[in-house]
Amino acid sequence: MTLPTLFVPHGGGPCFFMDAGGGPPDSVWRPMQAYLAGLVASLPERPRAILMVSGHWETPAVTVHVGERPALLYDYYGFPEHTYHLRWDAAGSPEVARRTAAALRAAGHEVVVEAARGWDHGVFVPMMVAVPGADIPLVQMSLRADLDPAAHIAIGRALAPLREEGVLIVGSGMSFHSLRARGPQVTAVATEWDDALTAAVTEADPARRRERVASWDSLPHARFAHPEAEHLLPLMVALGAGGDDAAVRDYRDVVMGWVVSGYRFG
C-alpha cells in the first residue's frame, strides 16, 4: 500500500491547547483541529512512521533527526504558562531517519544527521491533535536554509519510495503566513492568493504542477501571503514526494482573516 503525502496547517503556536482545563480551542481553530484529528483515519492504512518537515527548522544542508526520544522545543512566545508543559511523547525512529538520509544522499543531496534538537511546535502541536496517543514514531527533517522551491521538490521526490514502506510524509506549515496582516480586510486578497496557489498545486499535469508551484512567487499576492517562504516550503517537499499522483485540496477555512488550505497527494 502506497501512502499519500500531506501538506497540513499547524495553526498558530499552541492554538489548540489554550484552555488549561483541556477544553476545546477558540472557535476559530476548531475546523482546523477537526481536520487534523481526522488525518490518520483518512489514510488507506495506519502509518508505521511519520516523516515530517516543519516550517520552523532551517539548516544549511538538509538535517535529519535520528534520536530515539526527542524532547519538545517550545519555540513560541507570550502564551499561557501551561502551554510550555504540553507533552507528546512519541518515539523517534532512527531506522526511518537513516533510511531517509540514505535516500537523499543517493539522489545527490547533502545531508546532516543529529540527535539533540527537540521537536518544534510545527511538529508536536498538530501531532497532539492528529495522533493523540503518540503511538506512531516520528522523524523530523529540516528545510534547507536557502528555501529553494525546486530543490525542495527534488528532495521530496527522492523520499517518495518511503511511501511504499509505510512512512507518511507530511509537510507542516501554513498556506498563508503573514503575521502582520490579519483581520477581515485581508480575506479578499488571501482568497485570490489561495485560489491561485490551489490551481497550481492541483494542476493535472505533474510536470507542469512542479513548474507552477516552484514559481510560487509569481502568483498573485505571493509575497503578501508569504513575506518569508519557510511556511510554504514544506508544501514543496510533500508535492515532490507525491510524484505523479493526483493532488487535491482537502481542507480550506478562514482563520484570522487568512484563507488557509491543506493538500493531499495520492
Rank of each mutant, 00 (worst) to 15 (best):
S178N: 15
S178A: 14
D250M: 06
A37D: 06
P220L: 10
D244A: 13
S172Y: 00
A207G: 03
T191N: 11
A101H: 03
H226I: 02
T5K: 03
G122V: 04
M236R: 06
F224M: 15
V8G: 01
V259L: 11
M32N: 10
A102W: 11
L6R: 01
W193R: 09
R252C: 09
V167T: 03
L159N: 06
R208F: 12
G38C: 00
D250P: 04
L197M: 12
E114G: 13
A222Y: 15
L39F: 09
L159Q: 01
L36W: 07
D135H: 03
H109G: 02
E192M: 05
H85P: 12
A199W: 14
A134L: 04
A158K: 03
V255W: 05
H226P: 09
E110N: 14
H226T: 04
R210G: 14
V201G: 08
A200L: 12
S93G: 05
V248A: 15
A103S: 14
E81I: 13
L179C: 03
T187Y: 03
D217F: 08
S178G: 06
P149M: 08
R98G: 07
G38Y: 10
T83C: 13
H221I: 07
W258Q: 06
M127G: 02
R249V: 01
M52T: 01
A207P: 08
H109E: 01
V189S: 15
D217E: 14
A106D: 15
E164K: 08
R46Y: 04
L168G: 02
I50F: 11
D135E: 05
A181W: 15
I155A: 01
M127D: 05
P220N: 05
P31S: 02
V113N: 12
M174R: 11
A41W: 12
L179Y: 13
M256D: 04
G13C: 13
G133N: 07
G92L: 11
V201L: 10
G78L: 08
R46Q: 02
V66C: 05
G12R: 10
F224Y: 15
P14A: 07
V139W: 07
P161T: 12
T2Y: 05
A49Q: 00
T202W: 10
L239M: 15
T187V: 10
G55F: 03
R98C: 11
V53D: 02
A134H: 04
T2G: 06
L3I: 05
A134N: 13
R163N: 08
L233T: 06
F224V: 15
V189A: 15
A181Y: 13
A103Y: 07
F7D: 02
P70T: 08
V111G: 02
F79K: 10
P47I: 05
E58C: 09
D89R: 08
S93I: 04
H231W: 00
V139R: 00
D245N: 13
P4W: 02
L72G: 01
A49K: 01
P184L: 02
T59D: 05
T198K: 02
A97F: 00
Y251Q: 04
V260Q: 03
L6A: 00
S178T: 15
T198N: 04
P47Y: 02
V213A: 10
H82V: 08
G11M: 05
A91L: 07
T187I: 03
M174W: 12
V131I: 11
G242D: 02
V170L: 01
W258S: 09
V170H: 00
H231V: 07
A247D: 08
T191D: 13
